[in-house]
Amino acid sequence: MISFLPIPSYIKNINKQVSIISAFLNVRPCCRILILSFFVLFVFSSFETKAQSSSKLAEFCAATAGDDATYLKDFVIELDAAGADGKSPEQMFTLLLSKNSEYRFTVCNAEGSAGKAIFQLHDISKLYVTSYNASTGQTYQSVNFQCQKTGAYHLKVSFLDGKKGSAVVVVSFIRTL
């Protein structure tokens, strides 16, 4: 009777993990060290590669912002596709902007990103900037914001149509007003 019951998937996964560990323990100690070293190297190099690629994208995006722009900060965005509820995931950052300053917000999508990143800038009471015009469908890579009120602002980034994606938003200083 019992043998006809379906095996739950998490037990199957545990079995798989146990067999990997057993196979690992059966190899010679010197080989074990070698395998472990490769594993550690793989894990760390993938972290580093990710950091380097977002750093490269930020550098590229800062250059895209224009000759009149002085780089201030970049925000790295990585979001999954929308879930079953259809709601697009979004990432929010808080930044302080100063009166009498003009800023430029520039968005750059990572190579191979399925989604196209769009952003909004708002404070506690009002939406000021949006890089996507829903009525025309037009998107803007850069938007300037002439700030007249010192305070905290929120930068909200998401991907069009709830697609999965990765991108960088660079904030640059343009001029004193």
Binding site: K126, V129, F145, K149
Partner: peptide
């Protein structure tokens, strides 16, 4: 190039 001019003031 899109430019937004804030009219709130501190």
């Amino acid at each position: 190039m899109l430019t937004v001019i804030q009219k709130d003031k501190s």
